[in-house]
Design a binder for these strands. Structure first.
Length: 819
DNA sequence: CAATTGGGTTTTTTT
DNA sequence: AACCCAATTG
């Protein structure tokens, strides 16, 4: 490798060399210090590294497998770079190669490269792939993570400068809502008047835009709900509890860098190369953060796809991507358009749909692959029939074609759509997993344990304290609690200290006194233990002191109690595998990781069909993809269609685009004529997105069905004037002769003829629950319905379980299936 | 005064 | 099913 130092780059050399602007010495051994000394002393210099393609073999090997656009994206170092990466164009490949290239060929130490992703999962995958490229087992120095986790790290190191306690707790969304409820109570505002959800959205949106309560007061007119006041009070509650929420992580870091130049420079110098993935989903605060870090060295590389921006409701601003050049003049743009994932047919469908959008940079994906299979359209009478057909097809795919269930996915717009599918998956005995349903630590018992652990690190964590003050019940009822609350407010101290004081002054009596004493002493003991001890040891001590295994759980012998015990053990196992980096108390680190990592329920890794929302599907890919619920009002959701914002539907369309582009081999689109929403039955019309697809991508059987729904074809009715004219038309659904078998006739025939003995799929149209029906409850086992009551739409059933217990359920919410 | 029981409400998408 | 609030029981 040849390294040249220059103080300005002659344009004539630009094509032949890669240029890195540097104000720091390279720390890596590949570049001798003597050759870079000039760069530091003289402030800024250009370092040229000869183009990799014709240099040493290691580089060639590294970037050889990249296509020209990818290679350019991975190796361009001459200032700000914007990579527009279409779906399936090898984006992750480019980022990982870029990091490996920076490290191995330019000699940048890994800890100077910052790579930000949106999910922990993506970060983990990226870390693994980079390590693989570099040929090392693991590299702790690699600064890869989510915005939130990087901010947490920065704020812990800069706690003083940021005005935070070193051991601050991080509130997840649930804790945040709890805190808001507490504030509303304190301020005597009913939850009817100010819905906690809405307050939460308000506060989070304000924080994304770096607005303080005062700013809000100035910016917004007085509304009937005093949002700004609630926000202000909420911040006080958080400060008192030495806690910060998710959005604070971002806002405080940005404010720190904005107001404290020294701190900013410390980190800007540390992260000499900044990379941001999924840039189209960044919000204002995240944009500012990237800018504050990169504004000096301008070594920022962002990767995004405007067509996959689907998080505007969470504050993402697509304009961050569209206007990136304004923030970083002289930005070089590389477009990745060669798709390696999907068949030509799928790509054609995707491109045609997304072309309806106006907010685009514009790109045309192409593939060198074959046409592939045509798309299938599935029309059903209602959601149960829809689910059954899909289950049938899944059976066919896995049984007849030997498809690995892991390679099949079923997508939907919202979680509520999954219920019918889930039921049928069980009926057909198909293995499935729901991605992103219940988070593991959303369970009550895990939240309790986390609260104990939080207190062990930060005894002033009022929110945790309040949660477990009387869990398991230790005689501290509402009266005693309000006593503590008042004392805490009077003295301006935490609940923990207030309790201490009340005890000293003997103002707590009877059972409350004994209970509080035991609790306080236990917390003190946990605190001293937590300073050094292994997290698991702290947990064991907690379980012992609180007798949680017995008292914290309603009935350890019941089925629920049993699964709770299992969860506790699993949590303990999870803790045992945690490896702290050694900064501060290990338990504190564990809790931070816990708060930021939305770890899902454990997965045994057995092959399963995946059920997930489209939002959850971003970044993933499957051979076979079913997208259900393609109905007006469902997808696009009525909220978007009714919205005044023209771009609301564009975002829905991007969501559809994401769904389509996840599929590698075959895509199925499904529509149900009637859909049972949680509260009402609804006749539907097809989604406008179906009409935006070109007929040529569908198979002939599908086309026949579609033509029943869309009498005039695809927007070509001259009377109604062009594209999408028939969206608003009353459509006539003609059920097939035998609605339960067509177009699934072949599949059900197949199932009947199958040699393998397996339970027959259900015969009736809708699963009906009546007195005497044998049912299977997901958690509680099987039993018989003994009674049905309740008003229409809210039927309740009493189930007598086989083990003698019986319980009442609201039918439409209970996770039960006919046995 | 604490603890349990009963009734009413509830769902878009999530780091 | 999960949650919150009011009413009842110990």
């Amino acid at each position: 490798m040849i390294v040249i130092l220059l103080f300005s780059v002659p344009p004539c050399l630009r094509g032949d060399f890669i240029w890195a602007q540097s104000s720091m010495p390279f720390g890596a051994p590949k570049v001798p210090l003597s050759s870079t000394q000039g760069a530091t002393t003289l402030g800024r210099a250009w370092v040229a590294v000869r183009q990799p393609a014709d240099s040493d073999p290691a580089v060639r090997e590294l970037v050889d497998k990249l296509n020209p656009a990818q290679r350019e994206a991975a190796t361009y170092l001459d200032g700000p770079l914007m990579i527009i990466a279409g779906a399936g164009t090898g984006k992750t490949r480019v980022i990982t190669h870029r990091i490996a290239f920076l490290s191995r060929e330019v000699g940048i130490p890994l800890n100077q490269i910052l790579a930000v992703t949106f999910t922990n999962k993506a970060a983990k995958e990226m870390r693994e792939r980079v390590c693989h490229l570099l040929g090392v087992p693991d590299s702790p120095g690699l600064a890869i993570g989510t915005f939130h986790s990087r901010c947490a790290l920065i704020l812990r190191r800069e706690a003083d400068a940021a005005g935070l306690d070193q051991n601050f707790a991080i509130l997840d969304e649930n804790d945040q809502r709890q805190a808001i409820k507490r504030v509303l109570k304190e301020m005597n505002i009913s939850e009817k008047r100010a819905r906690p959800q809405q307050v939460q959205t308000f506060i989070n949106q304000a924080k994304m835009r770096l607005l303080t309560p005062q700013d809000c007061r100035a910016e917004f007119d007085e509304e009937d709900v005093p949002y700004a006041d609630i926000y202000e009070q909420y911040q006080k509650v958080l400060t008192q509890a030495k806690s910060i929420d998710f959005e604070d992580l971002m806002m405080r870091t940005v404010v720190l860098f904005r107001d404290n130049e020294q701190a900013r420079q410390r980190w800007a110098n540390r992260y000499h190369y900044v990379m941001v993935d999924e840039y189209q989903d960044t919000n204002h605060a995240q944009f500012l953060l990237s800018k504050l870090l990169a504004q000096d060295h301008r070594q920022i590389c962002i990767v995004g796809d405007e067509d996959q921006s689907i998080y505007s409701w969470r504050g993402a601003e697509i304009s961050n991507l569209l206007d990136f050049e304004k923030a970083f003049p002289g930005t070089h743009i590389v477009k990745l358009e060669h798709n390696y994932r999907s068949t030509a047919n799928i790509l054609k469908a995707a491109s045609t749909v997304i072309a309806h959008n106006t907010q685009r940079i514009g790109k045309e994906l192409f593939t060198t692959d074959a046409e592939g299979e045509l798309l299938s359209f599935i029309a059903s009478r209602d959601q149960d029939e829809e689910a059954r057909r899909i289950a049938q097809e899944c059976t066919r795919l896995t049984m007849a074609e030997g498809v690995n269930p892991d390679q099949i996915a079923i997508f939907y717009r919202g979680h509520w759509l999954s219920r019918a599918v889930e039921d049928q998956m069980r009926q057909f005995r198909l293995p499935y997993r729901m991605v992103g349903g219940l988070r593991f630590y959303d369970r009550a018992e895990i939240k309790d344990l986390l609260s104990f652990l939080r207190l062990a690190v930060n005894p002033d964590d009022n929110l945790a304290f309040e949660r477990v003050l009387n869990t398991p019940t230790r005689g501290i009822g509402p009266k005693a609690q309000s006593q503590i609350e008042i004392e805490a407010a009077r003295l301006g101290v935490s609940w923990m200290r207030a309790t201490h004081r009340l005890l000293q002054q003997e103002e707590l009596k009877g059972t409350a006194r004994r209970g509080a004493e035991a609790f306080i002493n236990a917390i003190d003991a946990w605190c001293s233990l937590a300073e050094h001890a292994d997290p698991v040891d702290v947990l064991d001590r907690i379980l012992l002191d609180t007798n949680y295994r017995n008292d914290g759980i309603a009935d350890p012998k019941s089925i629920e109690g049993e699964s709770k015990l299992e969860n506790i053990e699993e949590f303990r196992g999870l803790m045992a595998t945690f490896r702290p980096t050694g900064e501060g108390p290990p338990l504190a680190e564990f809790l931070t990781a816990m708060a930021l990592d939305a770890t899902e329920e454990k997965d045994d890794g057995r092959p399963r069909i995946n059920l997930l929302t489209i939002h959850n599907a971003k970044g993933l890919e499957y051979d076979y993809v079913f997208t259900i619920g393609l109905e007006k009002g469902v997808f696009p959701t009525s909220r978007a269609e009714d919205s005044m914002e023209a771009y609301a539907v564009e975002e829905e369309r991007r969501l559809f685009y994401v769904a389509i582009t996840r599929a590698r081999k075959k895509l199925y689109l499904s529509y149900a004529y009637q859909r049972n929403r949680p509260d009402f039955w609804q006749s539907t019309q097809p989604s406008r997105f179906l009409l935006e697809l070109p007929p040529s991508v569908f198979d002939s059987e599908s086309l026949r069905y579609m033509k029943r729904l869309v009498p005039y074809g695809w927007g070509n009715n001259p009377e109604r004037g062009g594209a999408n004219a028939n969206v608003d038309r009353e459509l006539v659904y003609t059920p097939a002769e035998d609605a339960t078998e067509a177009p699934g006739r072949a599949y059900s025939q197949y199932i009947r003829n199958m040699a393998a003995p397996r339970p027959a799929p259900p015969s009736g149209a809708k699963p009906k629950f009546t007195v005497g029906t044998r049912v299977l409850h997901r958690h509680l086992g099987s039993g018989v319905i003994s009674e049905i009551g309740g008003r229409p739409g809210w039927e309740r059933a009493v189930i007598d379980f086989d083990d003698g217990r019986s319980q009442e359920f609201v039918l439409k919410y209970a996770p039960i299936t006919a046995e």
